[in-house]
């Protein structure tokens, strides 16, 4: 990492270490490389999409230390030492399997460009609010643009998963007698 004052070496690569999807990762980036470009181009995690690149469309959402943030609105060098979870990580771990299945079942996507961001937002919302009403879901999605499906099926899918998870959580665990 450059020291303040090394202005003539502005574009020299710096080493960034992150835990990406649970794996320790190091890569060399220029300070001006955004996190989304680093994830896509260097780590080949292309599920994180670069859309508007100014924080409006929500296609580039990732989890930074457990909270959804725009990967286009931070530089990769800022993520040094952080835990990053991308859509690939959430999918592999199974934590959003029910959301994925419900999006699929309800045709809550067409081209799929916005879907990783939609799932990130849905996951972030349901992690902090187990029973959001439709208005809350719509509000949470206000920073995610979909340009083909429309939002109705997406809201339906998230509401259905919230309902199913709550029902499941309220049932006593099977096989437990004490």
């Amino acid at each position: 990492m450059s020291r303040a004052g090394d202005l003539d070496e502005a574009d020299d690569a710096v080493r960034v270490r992150m835990v990406v999807n649970g794996r320790k990762t190091a890569c060399d980036v220029a300070p001006r490389d955004t996190l989304v470009d680093c994830l896509r181009n260097q780590l080949e995690l292309t599920g994180t999409h670069a859309g508007c690149e100014m924080g409006a469309c929500g296609a580039c959402l990732v989890q930074l230390d457990g909270r959804a943030v725009h990967a286009c609105l931070m530089f990769a060098v800022q993520a040094d030492g952080a835990r990053i979870d991308t859509i690939e990580g959430l999918a592999e771990s199974g934590v959003i399997a029910d959301l994925q299945a419900e999006f699929h079942r309800r045709n809550a996507l067409q081209c799929g460009f916005c879907t990783p961001g939609m799932l990130m937002t849905a996951h972030d919302l349901l992690s902090h609010d187990a029973r959001p009403d439709r208005e809350t879901i719509r509000d949470a999605l206000s920073g995610n643009f979909c340009r083909c499906t429309g939002y109705e099926a997406i809201v339906d899918a998230i509401a259905a998963v919230a309902e199913a998870r709550t029902t499941k959580a309220s049932q006593p665990a099977e096989g437990s007698s004490s």
């Binding site: 990492m1 450059s2 020291r3 303040a4 004052g5 090394d6 202005l7 070496e9 502005a10 574009d11 710096v14 220029a30 300070p31 001006r32 955004t34 690149e53 530089f75 060098v77 800022q78 040094d80």
Partner: peptide, 27 residues
Amino acid sequence: MKARAFSYFRARTIDEALDAAARSGDE
């Protein structure tokens, strides 16, 4: 669009941040 090249400094204290700013003028 991409940002123009810049150097990056992660400050750990307020004094470090102020020192870095003082040494780089308006840049």
